[in-house]
Simulated scan of single mutants.
Amino acid sequence: MELNLEQIPREQTLSEKEFIQKYFKPQKPVVIERFVEDWPAYTKWNLDYIKEVAGEKIVPLYDDRPVKHDEGFNEPHATMKMRDYIDLLKSEPTKYRIFLWNLLKEVPQLQYDFSFPKFGLRLMKGLPMMFFGGSNSHTFMHYDIDLANIFHFHFEGKKKCILFPQSETKFLYKIPHSLITREDIDFANPDLEKWPALEFAKGFTTHLEHGNVLYIPEGYWHHMKYITPGFSMSLRAIARKPRNFGKAVYNILFMRHFDNAMRKIKGQEWIDWKNEKAVTRTHSLLYGK
């Protein structure tokens, strides 16, 4: 059996009014295929160009190893010069990814290659973040700490995206006091006998190629798998729904600090308890036990 996933709608382009009415207000995802063709980035941005303009930058790298109690929130697993990382991406499959790399801070000249689109939302202009990955590398299923509205612009290569709204959290084996699901679930090919609740989760899927933009509504869970080496840029707008905004404030001001403190106090015992609780909570809701 497979996950219950609906294809995300695709549009050639969208006006601000169409986007607000069809996708933002109902909080539904969409892929816009030809929105950025007038950006210089559309013709310039590829791995070779990034290597040219950012090759000497030291970048943080992450892989798919499980979270450890002695690692801080979003602490990188390795570092490397961007030119060496891109050479690695192009030469062989690698688990190493870059995420939340602030391009305005690191390479200001890249800001002239794109413009902030008018989607009817106030975008955070100081936080355009970039993400890189090699063939078959992937993110854990997660949602963002601020539950933002996300516009995810993809460049070079191809990647597969799986999304779930917050309404499906009860089926996803969410880790308590965290923003991720059980890390041993392969959402690209899940074992539904081991993780039976996933069968009831209703989500969305799509593939992104160069120049596509994916709208990820507030607080949506997302899993990204790079089919080929590539990179993306995300622009974001704060959560507009009061419930989501409240969750964002809680996550930022309390949740992550509480979790870090408990890791220091209880060590691996805390991580093991959270992993076990993710299963027992999910199955108690599923089976009423």
Rank of each mutant, 00 (worst) to 15 (best):
L5D: 09
K241N: 11
Y173C: 11
M262G: 01
W270M: 09
L172T: 14
V107K: 03
H138R: 07
L285W: 00
V36G: 09
I238S: 06
I185N: 13
P9D: 12
I86W: 00
W45Y: 02
I86E: 08
V67H: 07
Y49W: 06
R240A: 07
W270G: 05
E75S: 05
G120R: 15
Q109R: 10
V59R: 04
D87M: 00
E37V: 14
L88C: 10
L208V: 09
F99W: 05
D84K: 10
T205M: 12
F171N: 00
N149D: 11
A78T: 04
M129G: 11
V107S: 06
E18T: 13
Q111Y: 11
L89Y: 01
D146S: 08
N74Y: 11
R10M: 07
S232D: 01
I265S: 07
P66M: 00
R281P: 11
K225Q: 15
E156I: 02
G134L: 02
Y62P: 05
D87G: 12
R65Y: 01
E11W: 12
E11L: 09
K51R: 13
I8E: 03
L100M: 07
K105W: 11
D259T: 06
R240L: 14
A197G: 13
M224S: 06
F131A: 05
K22A: 06
M233N: 12
Y42C: 14
D87H: 04
L5P: 01
L88M: 06
K118M: 10
D38V: 08
R281I: 15
M141S: 13
D259N: 06
H154N: 15
F164M: 01
K125N: 08
K247V: 10
R10S: 08
A54Q: 03
L147P: 01
L192N: 13
K274M: 10
E183I: 05
N46R: 05
I180T: 15
E2Y: 03
A239S: 15
S167F: 09
F131L: 10
K202R: 15
R256V: 04
N74S: 08
I227T: 10
P128Q: 03
N244Q: 13
L104F: 13
L103I: 15
Y23T: 04
T43S: 12
L163K: 03
R240M: 14
F99V: 10
K266Q: 07
Q27W: 05
Y62M: 11
